[in-house]
Design a binder for these strands. Structure first.
Lengths: 191, 191
DNA sequence: AACAGTCTATCTAGCACTAGGTAGGTAAGG
DNA sequence: CCTTACCTACCTAGTGCTAGATAGACTGTT
């Protein structure tokens, strides 16, 4: 039931797992943490998600889905503002919740990740790179962006940069650095 | 003795801890992993490093030091090639050892890090940002690099970008992405 | 040179605790 | 009365860390 049509408690579990992983990574959270946070016993988590791998997979899937939707709903008058709005998603997560992107966190943990979760990580970044690439291409056709740059490569670098800046900004407690990185990236792509 | 003048075994432990943390993070390695790797029992690690926090701190310190030295020895005819050589350190670590930068890994784990280790992370990135900033400034004075960009902000973005690209490249098993990101960054700073 | 004391680096054994996971039971509701 | 969604109670494996012992190398004294 959990994957196809998650109950409200199953969603609470997913939500709690998401926040914990975004904060501490795959190896840094436990079933007991999740249980305490949603108000049931740790054994009961297994009823909804059989193993930690299953829980992490479902969490990553749901996150990937939600992020894709959030990104799809971004609107802006210019390609520049669209990229700014995209980066704003990262800025908000860091500034308001002090958390990293789930994708980035899981990417860092990839060496100790179950295969099924690793797959989701790849899916997530493929989608993100693609979306940004399209945004860049659009800006290139409108004349806002430099046309001498490889859109695909810039897009990957853009996403990497935001993920890295998020990580380091939190690491050294300088959240402003993420915002500065975003503005720098936008300045660099502009024609 | 361990901190001031580490014995050969203490250095083995440090080296093993470094590799394990670069691969799996702070929460992903154990004293038993280190012990197995250096060929002593896990209890004996405590003789050299009293706690896991102490071990991680010493590892981060040694890494920071070694990285600073490696960077100080970089030479190139142009500022462009200097940045390329700097990025090459990241590329080599990923390509030849499949590992991430210790600084980036610890930054991701910052929420579950002992204070003393968190401090080392900040020290590491401050040094890195500074070095790159100087390299950028140099390139700006020689006319190689764009002078309309804030050197400090570009430098931070540059480091973040390499860290993020390293993480994601390994995460999605596309090591070429890191190299592409490096070349993109260099293309962007050039006048 | 011989002895006594101390230091180094390791061991075995085990502590208290946490991890993910399991077995079996139970109260509520269709 | 069966399914749902939990529970209690437990297991095994592994965690960081400690206690106490020991073999071997050093150091100072006689």
């Amino acid at each position: 039931m959990s994957a196809a049509n998650p109950s409200s408690k199953a969603l609470d579990i997913l939500e709690s797992a998401r926040m914990l992983i975004m904060d501490r990574g795959f190896n840094g959270f436990s079933f007991r943490d999740v249980a305490a946070s949603v108000g049931i016993k740790s054994a009961s988590i297994h009823y909804h998600y059989a193993t930690k791998a299953d829980l992490a997979e479902a969490t990553a899937q749901a996150y990937s889905e939600a992020f894709k939707e959030a990104v799809a709903q971004l609107e802006a008058d210019t390609a520049t503002d669209l990229l700014r709005a995209y980066g704003g998603l990262f800025v908000t997560t860091l500034r308001e919740h002090g958390r990293l992107c789930l994708g980035g966190m899981l990417a860092a943990d990839v060496a100790s990740l179950p295969d099924q979760v690793r797959t989701e990580v790849a899916v997530f970044f493929t989608a993100q790179n693609e979306w940004v690439e399209n945004a860049v291409r659009h800006g290139q056709t409108t004349g806002e962006f430099r046309t001498d740059l490889d859109a695909a490569k810039f897009a990957k670098m853009f996403v990497s940069s935001l993920e890295g800046a998020m990580m380091i900004s939190r690491g050294i407690e300088q959240p402003q650095d993420l915002e500065d990185a975003l503005e720098m990236l936008i300045q660099l792509i502009q024609a």
